[in-house]
Protein backbone atom coordinates (compact mmCIF):
# COMPACT_ATOMS: atom_id res chain seq x y z
CA UNK A 1 0.00 0.00 0.00
CA UNK A 2 1.49 3.30 -1.14
CA UNK A 3 0.19 6.68 -0.11
CA UNK A 4 1.61 10.04 -1.22
CA UNK A 5 0.33 13.20 0.41
CA UNK A 6 1.18 16.64 -1.03
CA UNK A 7 4.68 15.65 -2.16
CA UNK A 8 6.84 18.65 -3.06
CA UNK A 9 10.44 18.45 -4.24
CA UNK A 10 12.40 21.61 -4.88
CA UNK A 11 15.88 21.60 -6.39
CA UNK A 12 18.02 24.65 -5.91
CA UNK A 13 20.91 25.47 -8.21
CA UNK A 14 22.30 28.87 -7.32
CA UNK A 15 19.43 31.32 -7.34
CA UNK A 16 17.24 29.10 -9.50
CA UNK A 17 14.53 27.10 -7.87
CA UNK A 18 13.01 24.16 -9.73
CA UNK A 19 9.78 22.62 -8.48
CA UNK A 20 10.28 19.07 -9.76
CA UNK A 21 7.21 17.87 -7.85
CA UNK A 22 4.42 20.22 -7.00
CA UNK A 23 1.81 19.00 -4.53
CA UNK A 24 1.45 15.44 -5.77
CA UNK A 25 -1.01 13.16 -3.98
CA UNK A 26 -2.14 9.67 -4.93
CA UNK A 27 -2.28 6.15 -3.59
CA UNK A 28 -1.58 2.72 -5.02
CA UNK A 29 -3.18 -0.39 -3.58
CA UNK A 30 -1.37 -3.72 -3.11
CA UNK A 31 -1.33 -5.78 -6.27
CA UNK A 32 -1.84 -2.87 -8.63
CA UNK A 33 0.11 -2.44 -11.86
CA UNK A 34 0.47 1.31 -12.42
CA UNK A 35 2.25 3.29 -15.11
CA UNK A 36 3.58 6.76 -14.35
CA UNK A 37 3.82 8.55 -17.62
CA UNK A 38 5.10 11.93 -18.68
CA UNK A 39 7.50 13.65 -21.05
CA UNK A 40 11.11 14.18 -20.05
CA UNK A 41 11.46 16.87 -17.39
CA UNK A 42 7.95 16.23 -16.14
CA UNK A 43 9.17 15.08 -12.71
CA UNK A 44 8.47 11.39 -13.20
CA UNK A 45 12.07 10.42 -12.39
CA UNK A 46 11.96 12.54 -9.23
CA UNK A 47 8.73 10.80 -8.28
CA UNK A 48 10.33 7.42 -8.88
CA UNK A 49 13.23 8.36 -6.58
CA UNK A 50 10.70 9.27 -3.86
CA UNK A 51 8.74 6.05 -4.31
CA UNK A 52 11.97 4.05 -4.35
CA UNK A 53 13.21 5.63 -1.11
CA UNK A 54 16.29 6.89 -2.89
CA UNK A 55 15.42 10.47 -2.00
CA UNK A 56 13.20 12.32 0.44
CA UNK A 57 10.65 15.03 -0.43
CA UNK A 58 11.14 18.71 0.49
CA UNK A 59 7.69 18.58 2.04
CA UNK A 60 4.73 16.23 2.12
CA UNK A 61 4.50 12.65 3.32
CA UNK A 62 5.08 9.28 1.75
CA UNK A 63 3.70 6.17 3.45
CA UNK A 64 4.96 2.76 2.38
CA UNK A 65 3.03 -0.07 4.03
CA UNK A 66 1.76 2.47 6.54
CA UNK A 67 5.26 3.65 7.50
CA UNK A 68 6.27 7.26 6.89
CA UNK A 69 9.55 7.16 5.01
CA UNK A 70 9.71 10.82 4.03
CA UNK A 71 11.96 11.87 6.91
CA UNK A 72 14.33 8.92 7.32
CA UNK A 73 18.14 8.95 7.41
CA UNK A 74 20.25 7.56 4.56
CA UNK A 75 20.89 4.27 6.34
CA UNK A 76 17.24 3.84 7.28
CA UNK A 77 16.29 4.49 3.65
CA UNK A 78 18.82 1.83 2.61
CA UNK A 79 17.09 -0.65 4.91
CA UNK A 80 13.68 0.24 3.39
CA UNK A 81 15.10 -0.34 -0.10
CA UNK A 82 16.67 -3.61 0.99
CA UNK A 83 13.43 -5.00 2.42
CA UNK A 84 10.56 -3.42 0.51
CA UNK A 85 11.68 -2.26 -2.91
CA UNK A 86 12.95 -3.86 -6.08
CA UNK A 87 14.44 -1.77 -8.87
CA UNK A 88 14.57 -2.44 -12.59
CA UNK A 89 16.62 0.05 -14.58
CA UNK A 90 16.68 1.06 -18.23
CA UNK A 91 20.33 0.02 -18.56
CA UNK A 92 19.93 -3.23 -16.53
CA UNK A 93 22.89 -2.38 -14.21
CA UNK A 94 24.05 -5.96 -13.81
CA UNK A 95 27.52 -6.58 -12.39
CA UNK A 96 29.82 -7.40 -15.30
CA UNK A 97 31.95 -10.57 -15.33
CA UNK A 98 29.64 -12.02 -12.68
CA UNK A 99 27.29 -14.97 -13.08
CA UNK A 100 23.55 -14.51 -13.57
CA UNK A 101 22.84 -16.34 -10.33
CA UNK A 102 25.21 -14.15 -8.34
CA UNK A 103 23.69 -11.00 -9.81
CA UNK A 104 20.26 -12.11 -8.65
CA UNK A 105 21.58 -12.98 -5.18
CA UNK A 106 23.24 -9.57 -4.74
CA UNK A 107 20.44 -7.90 -2.71
CA UNK A 108 20.40 -10.84 -0.28
CA UNK A 109 24.08 -10.28 0.52
CA UNK A 110 23.19 -7.03 2.22
CA UNK A 111 20.31 -8.71 4.04
CA UNK A 112 22.81 -11.27 5.44
CA UNK A 113 20.77 -14.19 4.12
CA UNK A 114 22.74 -17.47 4.46
CA UNK A 115 24.34 -18.70 1.26
CA UNK A 116 22.19 -21.77 0.70
CA UNK A 117 18.92 -19.90 1.15
CA UNK A 118 20.16 -17.21 -1.21
CA UNK A 119 20.62 -19.70 -4.02
CA UNK A 120 17.18 -21.20 -3.48
CA UNK A 121 15.49 -17.81 -3.52
CA UNK A 122 17.49 -16.59 -6.53
CA UNK A 123 16.51 -19.76 -8.37
CA UNK A 124 12.83 -19.14 -7.64
CA UNK A 125 13.09 -15.59 -8.94
CA UNK A 126 14.80 -16.70 -12.13
CA UNK A 127 12.06 -19.31 -12.67
CA UNK A 128 9.42 -16.62 -12.11
CA UNK A 129 10.84 -14.50 -14.95
CA UNK A 130 11.21 -17.56 -17.16
CA UNK A 131 14.96 -17.53 -17.68
CA UNK A 132 16.10 -20.98 -18.87
CA UNK A 133 18.12 -22.83 -16.27
CA UNK A 134 21.06 -23.38 -18.65
CA UNK A 135 21.69 -19.60 -18.56
CA UNK A 136 21.96 -19.29 -14.78
CA UNK A 137 25.69 -19.81 -14.65
CA UNK A 138 26.49 -17.66 -17.67
CA UNK A 139 28.27 -14.39 -17.06
CA UNK A 140 25.94 -11.41 -17.19
CA UNK A 141 27.63 -9.99 -20.30
CA UNK A 142 27.25 -13.25 -22.23
CA UNK A 143 23.45 -13.15 -22.55
CA UNK A 144 21.07 -11.15 -24.73
CA UNK A 145 19.55 -7.78 -23.79
CA UNK A 146 16.12 -9.26 -23.16
CA UNK A 147 17.61 -11.93 -20.93
CA UNK A 148 19.66 -9.29 -19.10
CA UNK A 149 16.51 -7.33 -18.32
CA UNK A 150 14.78 -10.47 -17.09
CA UNK A 151 17.76 -11.16 -14.84
CA UNK A 152 17.38 -7.61 -13.54
CA UNK A 153 13.69 -8.29 -12.86
CA UNK A 154 14.60 -11.49 -11.05
CA UNK A 155 17.04 -9.46 -8.93
CA UNK A 156 14.23 -7.00 -8.13
CA UNK A 157 12.00 -9.91 -7.04
CA UNK A 158 14.45 -11.79 -4.90
CA UNK A 159 13.89 -9.84 -1.68
CA UNK A 160 10.09 -10.27 -2.03
CA UNK A 161 9.49 -6.51 -2.14
CA UNK A 162 6.24 -4.66 -1.50
CA UNK A 163 6.89 -2.62 -4.59
CA UNK A 164 8.72 -3.19 -7.87
CA UNK A 165 9.83 0.02 -9.55
CA UNK A 166 10.70 -0.21 -13.21
CA UNK A 167 12.34 2.87 -14.75
CA UNK A 168 11.96 2.78 -18.56
CA UNK A 169 12.59 -0.99 -18.53
CA UNK A 170 12.14 -1.30 -22.30
CA UNK A 171 14.15 1.80 -23.25
CA UNK A 172 17.22 -0.17 -24.31
CA UNK A 173 15.34 -3.03 -25.98
CA UNK A 174 13.78 -3.53 -29.41
CA UNK A 175 9.99 -3.61 -29.60
CA UNK A 176 9.64 -7.38 -29.62
CA UNK A 177 11.99 -8.02 -26.69
CA UNK A 178 10.41 -5.06 -24.90
CA UNK A 179 6.99 -6.65 -25.24
CA UNK A 180 8.32 -9.88 -23.82
CA UNK A 181 9.69 -8.01 -20.79
CA UNK A 182 6.35 -6.19 -20.34
CA UNK A 183 4.61 -9.55 -20.62
CA UNK A 184 6.80 -10.74 -17.76
CA UNK A 185 5.72 -7.80 -15.61
CA UNK A 186 2.07 -8.44 -16.37
CA UNK A 187 2.44 -12.09 -15.52
CA UNK A 188 4.15 -11.30 -12.21
CA UNK A 189 1.34 -8.89 -11.41
CA UNK A 190 -1.47 -11.22 -12.36
CA UNK A 191 -0.10 -14.48 -11.05
CA UNK A 192 2.04 -13.46 -8.08
CA UNK A 193 0.11 -10.28 -7.17
CA UNK A 194 3.24 -8.12 -7.15
CA UNK A 195 2.72 -4.36 -6.94
CA UNK A 196 4.45 -2.82 -9.95
CA UNK A 197 5.07 0.81 -10.83
CA UNK A 198 6.29 1.40 -14.34
CA UNK A 199 7.84 4.71 -15.30
CA UNK A 200 7.79 5.49 -19.00
CA UNK A 201 7.30 8.22 -21.58
CA UNK A 202 5.72 5.91 -24.16
CA UNK A 203 1.99 5.48 -24.33
CA UNK A 204 2.20 1.94 -25.78
CA UNK A 205 4.29 0.86 -22.79
CA UNK A 206 1.97 2.54 -20.29
CA UNK A 207 -0.94 0.72 -21.90
CA UNK A 208 0.30 -2.58 -20.41
CA UNK A 209 -0.55 -1.34 -16.93
CA UNK A 210 -4.01 -1.33 -15.33
CA UNK A 211 -3.85 2.36 -14.54
CA UNK A 212 -1.91 5.37 -15.83
CA UNK A 213 -0.91 8.44 -13.85
CA UNK A 214 0.08 11.20 -16.24
CA UNK A 215 2.29 13.95 -14.89
CA UNK A 216 3.66 17.14 -16.42
CA UNK A 217 5.61 20.01 -14.86
CA UNK A 218 5.53 18.25 -11.50
CA UNK A 219 1.74 18.01 -11.33
CA UNK A 220 -0.66 15.12 -11.91
CA UNK A 221 -2.64 15.88 -15.06
CA UNK A 222 -4.70 12.74 -15.16
CA UNK A 223 -5.11 9.46 -13.25
CA UNK A 224 -7.30 6.88 -14.94
CA UNK A 225 -7.86 3.16 -15.37
CA UNK A 226 -6.68 1.74 -18.68
CA UNK A 227 -9.47 0.22 -20.70
Amino acid sequence: MIECKNLVKIYRTGDNETRALDDVSFSIADGEFVAIMGPSGSGKSTLMHMLGALDTPTSGKYFLDGKDVSKLSDDALATIRMKKIGFVFQSFNLLPRTSVLRNVMLPLIYEKVPRHEREVRAGKSLEAVGLPKNRWHHLSNQISGGQMQRVAIARALVNEPSLILADEPTGNLDTKTGEFVLQTFRKLNEEKKHTIVLITHEEEVAAWAQRTIFIRDGKIISDKKNS
Partner: peptide
Amino acid sequence: TREIGLRKAIGAKGAD
Protein backbone atom coordinates in the same frame (compact mmCIF):
# COMPACT_ATOMS: atom_id res chain seq x y z
CA THR B 1 30.49 4.47 -9.64
CA ARG B 2 27.42 2.93 -11.32
CA GLU B 3 28.00 -0.34 -9.54
CA ILE B 4 28.20 1.50 -6.22
CA GLY B 5 24.96 3.31 -7.14
CA LEU B 6 23.28 -0.01 -7.88
CA ARG B 7 24.49 -1.59 -4.66
CA LYS B 8 23.14 1.34 -2.70
CA ALA B 9 19.83 1.21 -4.56
CA ILE B 10 19.31 -2.43 -3.65
CA GLY B 11 20.00 -1.79 0.02
CA ALA B 12 23.74 -1.47 0.70
CA LYS B 13 24.46 1.00 3.48
CA GLY B 14 27.38 3.44 3.43
CA ALA B 15 29.20 1.20 5.90
CA ASP B 16 28.83 -1.83 3.60
